[in-house]
Amino acid sequence: MHIPDGYLSPKTCAVFYAAMAPVWYVAARKVQKTLQAKQIPLLALSAAFSFVIMMFNIPIPGGTTGHMTGGVVVASVLGPWAAVISLSLALTIQALLFGDGGITTLGANCFNMAFIMPFAGYYVYNIVTTGSPGQRRRWAALFIAGYVAMNIAALAVAIELGIQPIIASSPDGIPLYAPYPLSVTIFAMAASHLLFFGLIEGLGTAMIVSYILKTNEAMLYKPAANPLKPLWIALIILIILTPLGLLAKGAAWGEWASEELIALLGYVPEGLKGLEGLWSSIMPGYNIPGFNSPVKSAAGYIISAALGSGLIVLIIYLTGKIWKKG
């Protein structure tokens, strides 16, 4: 799960550092608001706790053992935002002092394990335990939360590694960073995490948190009412529906490319012609370069939509924050 130095291209590393910067900022502000001056020792200790959990071998059926990342355990005690910071601190210590995971890839590793994992686990747990769950459902919810969170994080790792041959290859097709295409990385990560690592994470999460539930429930994080939930659900539905756009013919009104402008007007206005080459996006046409078949194209469309909408939500959220402050 920890991506070492050298596997991701500098561009990818920069993108993930940039993506994590606002997450860290918002997390720090949220934590500051709720924990105030207590935050430093509490974050330090919970980061130390995350680090120690990651070291433990958890016994699993069959007599073997495996490691867990503990992202969901930390999120269930501290809440997802504080978990972002303490897991990031733990990952930083691992990368800096012990060489687990790279320095250049720290942004990506934090994105996968300190952002996606606690949030995915937290929301999955809340969705499964809606209503008034009994002890069994809670146990199951914890297992599913750990399992799903681990697999979503693994999918993120697979995508990060799998896009490397597309974005960084030498002219004669030699991959410069992680060499396997998406089809291989997704299969490999899915197989190992669906069958093995996800189970360890799920089992570990269920064991630890259900013990806390039994003995000292007050230790667990209590979320305030979440008015954002319907928004999230609507957003997810929209993202899933976006491939419908593929069925519609023609370009969206006002979004004509040069060729379409020629067909419509017979010429391209000079001013537009000059501007066209100015910005070539990372995912031209809402697609990931190299995704040509219809199925892949739909997948690319979903990924593009998820990233795009995530980015927009983030921008709106940050603007709101700054607005409120001003």
Partner: peptide
């Protein structure tokens, strides 16, 4: 120990470490 015993024991230890860490955080603060 069996997986269940071992897992249960480890869950208790992890809980103990977590409780200690939260207590220590309070004292340090």
């Amino acid at each position: 120990s069996t997986v269940k015993e071992g897992g249960g024991w480890l869950a208790k230890r992890i809980w103990l470490i977590m409780e200690r860490s939260l207590e220590t955080a309070e004292s340090v603060y």
